[in-house]
Structure formats: C-alpha cells, structure tokens
Design a binder for these strands. Structure first.
Lengths: 255, 255
DNA sequence: CGAATCCTTGAACACCTTCAACAGGGGTGG
DNA sequence: CCACCCCTGTTGAAGGTGTTCAAGGATTCG
C-alpha cells in the first residue's frame, strides 16, 4: 500500500529543519531583518546534541534559562497533576517552540521529553531579550509567537470543552497534518511518535477510547492505521469531523 | 447571615481599581521604573467611558489596535464556534488584561462583552510597543504578562481534560476567590456576574449540571448560593475538591 | 402585573470510562 | 534463530457520569 512514499516519511525524523523554515525565523523574516541582525540572532543560538527517546529537555522546576526550537523529531510537554499523574500539554514538531510558559515563572512549570530521537536549538532567553532591545522587529515577533501560543491553547480549550471524543481525535490528526504541511511534509501520511496513552492524556480520553476511535475511523474509510503509521484517506471528511460541533446543543446561546 | 459585609461586597462593582493595584502596573513595578517612565506609560493609556452590561468592547474580526485592562466590573471573552454558538474563553476581573491573543492576528479572534457595568483602560498597542523599545523593563513585563496568560490557559486545559464536573466548578470558584483576594476583596463572599449559562459554557458542562452542582455544594455545607451571590463556607474543602484529581485512574502513567 | 429570561429539578438516555482479558511486537537471552 | 516476556495496543461487557428532554419555579424588567 503506497510503500513508495515510506522512505520520505520515515526520513522525516532525520531531516534537519533549516532555520529559514523554522518558526523562530519568523522572529525576523516578516519585518525584513538585515543579514547582520540575522547573524546576531544566529550567534546566540546553541545547537545541542540530539536527545534520545525518553530523555528530558527540562524537568518541572528546572530554572528557566532558555527557550527551545525543535529541529527534528518530536517533543512532548507535560505537567504533573496533584496526584502524581501527568497532563500532556502539547506535542512539538520540527520548527516549533517550547518553554514559553516559563517566562513568567523563573522555573519551568512543565517538563519536556523527547518522543523519539530529536535535535533542538537552545536559545538563552536573557541574551534573546537583550538582542531584542537592539532589534525592535525581533521584539515584535517574540510577542507574536507568544500570542500564537495563546491562540493555540484557546483552540484546544474549545476542543476539550465542547467536542466529543470523535471530534477531538479528528482535530488532533488534522492539526498534525496541517503542521506537517507547513513544514513541507506529507499531509496524508505520517508517523505518530506519541503513544496512545499520550494521545488519550492530551485529548482527555481513556486509552481504550482512542483505540476504538482509530478502529472506527478505519472502518469508515477515513484512514488506515498500523501501529504508529497513519495514512489519511479522506482528509476533507476528517476535517469536517474535526471542525463541526455536535448535532446542535438545543437552542442558540446568547450572542 | 453576615449582612454587614454586603455593602462592601456589592460596592465591588463600583470600585475603581487604582493603577498600582492593576496587573498592568506590573509592567513597570518589579523592575523599578522611574516616575518619568511611569508617566510616559500613563500618558498613552486612554480611559474609556464605562461600558454597560451586554455592551461589547470589541467584536470578533475587529481590527486589533489596543489591549484592555479592566478597572471595575467584569468582562467575558468568547469566541464563536463553527456552528454559530460560542465558547467562553475567560472571565476578566478588575486589574486583569484582555485582548492579548490578538497580537499575532491583526484582528480579534474573540469578542469581549461586559457582564455588568464596567470601566476599562484602553492601551493602544503600537504606542505600547514603541514605548517598550525605550523602556526594556516594560518589554520584559509585557512578555511576562503574555506568559502568565499561557500558564492560565494551560491550567484550564488540565481542568477540561482531566477533571470531573464537581472539580471544575470548585476550581472556578477557587480561582475567582483567589483573584478577588489578590485585589483585596473578600475571598469567601462575592458576586457571580456571569450567568449559569456562561459558567457551563466556560467549564464545558450543561447548564443543568452547573445548577445541580451548586445545589449539591450547598447541601454538603461547602457554600451558600442565592442566585448570583456566593458565600463560601468551607474554603479548604472546596480547594481540596478543586485541586484533587479523581479517585485514581487505575495505574501510574509513565513519568 | 405580565412576560421573558434565568434557574432549578426530575427522569431517561448516551457516551465514555472502567474493568477484564487477549493479541501483537520488539527486545533479550538462551 | 527461536522462545519467552514485557509493554503497548486492541476488543468486549458493565457501569457511571453528565447530557438531553421536559416541565415547573423564581426574578427582573417593561
């Protein structure tokens, strides 16, 4: 079944995302930063050695010193709950940032863990801040990135607050697909680096429910799934599932 | 039943919060901004006339030009869902900011509506940004405020993803209580300016469930509630309800 | 005072969870 | 190289929590 694309898909984990395809580069790109300023930004970024599956980028309570950009692989962020369990906050794909929530707190309120072998850029925050004083457009873009994070969280709020299990899983798959598209990867075929457990945790569902949904989606011809390999067959219908809210909860709420 | 406090509580909606008690003032306070810089900040802030219950501060799609700080009253922010309903994003009390999510988008992704007669400060964003170029500590504080917003949203995610109806309502009441405490108001007795509908919408619950929970909390001696007037009788137990996660979802998830 | 709206209460139902057992891979060691 | 085991994922059945539907009660405002 379409094994020809497999090499491209599998190699995704090895591909290094160039800075120009990275969200972080949007810190300068749209406002037309000069090469010298770009050079300055590039200079403060540290490129860490790859982290292996299961390794932590930072732990809860670690002192906040830097934000991170994913170059390859994938990272999950999660926070401990009062009873010793965890809540998955997000999955971070190549070109995306992590650690933004810590800026206010001086220490990290959540932990970050590699879902597979990954590489990241570490951007020391105080240096970034100093640099942004010299480069106003950088400061503006920093705010933009934070604002985008707020937007993302709020759309997730809507997901968890209003949507059914079916809609939640569909929404996650669509989100992954869209984000892969932005990075130039396949929209319809990709690797789920996170476990069913992580997915259920993230979506506020039991693992069993996630499993059953994958089975149902497959029966309905929406996708095929083999372990962690996903192939979306009917993207429009999946998207409709993800965006549509339930049949209609009685009457109109006050506008 | 302790009616002596009522005048103080009811007058809450009329009290004007001085700038020094306002979150926005934290944009300068912690880093010790000089009086002249504070003067500059104060100069760009526009104090709008009071908005009445039901009036909008801004609508979805309005061009983003300013962020707002609540001086008195309360504001709800909400976004439309695909089917014409709405999702309440947050309730904003005196001293809190709104409109931060719009920075990335150029237009407002959500609307803001007064829950009661309220007054707000309008802070033109481009002027704020320009000012923050001159005042680095202001820039830092702006990032902090955004980061705090992310933290808040993420704790809400946990609420909607993992907690039972009971825990959600308890968490909202505790959140309100804590925020009132920070502003110097009563922790145990306050006015719910939002409708049950808004509460249910915000917490991802049916109105009926919210109503039943209030009744149950009352039966259990946690609080008394009369229409919109709340009096918390057992704050520690309510807090325990809010922070504790369910009995224990089977086994430990992977740390 | 009447009407509209908001809130409450009750009963049936639906969805998702929980409990339980099994299957399938991937790694390790024989 | 195969056997075994552990972990992850799947499937089934029972149960609970919250929703939906329906109706009645309270409050506010014209």
């Amino acid at each position: 079944m379409g094994g020809e694309d497999l090499s491209k898909i599998i190699s995704l984990t090895q591909i290094k995302v160039a800075c120009k395809d990275c969200n972080l580069f949007q810190l300068c790109l749209p406002v037309g930063i000069g090469d010298e300023d770009l050079e300055l930004l590039d200079r403060i970024i540290r490129r860490k050695r790859p982290v292996r599956r299961g390794e932590h980028l930072f732990q809860v309570g670690d002192r906040f010193q830097a934000i991170y950009a994913v170059r390859s692989g994938s990272i999950k962020t999660f926070a401990p709950t009062e009873d010793g369990h965890e809540q998955v906050i997000g999955f971070h794909l190549p070109g995306e940032l992590l650690g933004l929530a810590a800026i206010t707190a001086e220490y990290h309120p959540c932990a970050a863990k590699a879902l597979e072998t990954s590489s990241v850029c570490e951007i020391p925050f105080d240096e970034l801040e100093q640099l942004s004083e010299q480069v106003p457009s950088l400061q503006h873009q920093l705010l933009k990135v934070m604002s985008k994070e707020i937007l993302h969280d709020q759309s997730l709020l809507m997901l968890l607050g209003k949507k059914s299990a079916e809609e939640r899983l569909a929404a996650l798959l669509i989100s992954l697909s869209d984000r892969y598209r932005q990075r130039g990867f396949s929209v319809s075929e990709f690797h789920l680096s996170m476990s069913r457990n992580d997915i259920g945790n993230y979506l506020g569902l039991a693992v069993e429910t996630v499993s059953r949904l994958f089975t149902r989606f497959q029966e309905e011809g929406l996708l095929t799934v083999q372990r962690k390999h996903i192939r979306i067959l009917d993207l429009p219908r999946l998207r409709a599932l993800a965006t549509n809210v339930r049949p209609a909860p009685s009457r109109l709420s006050q506008a």
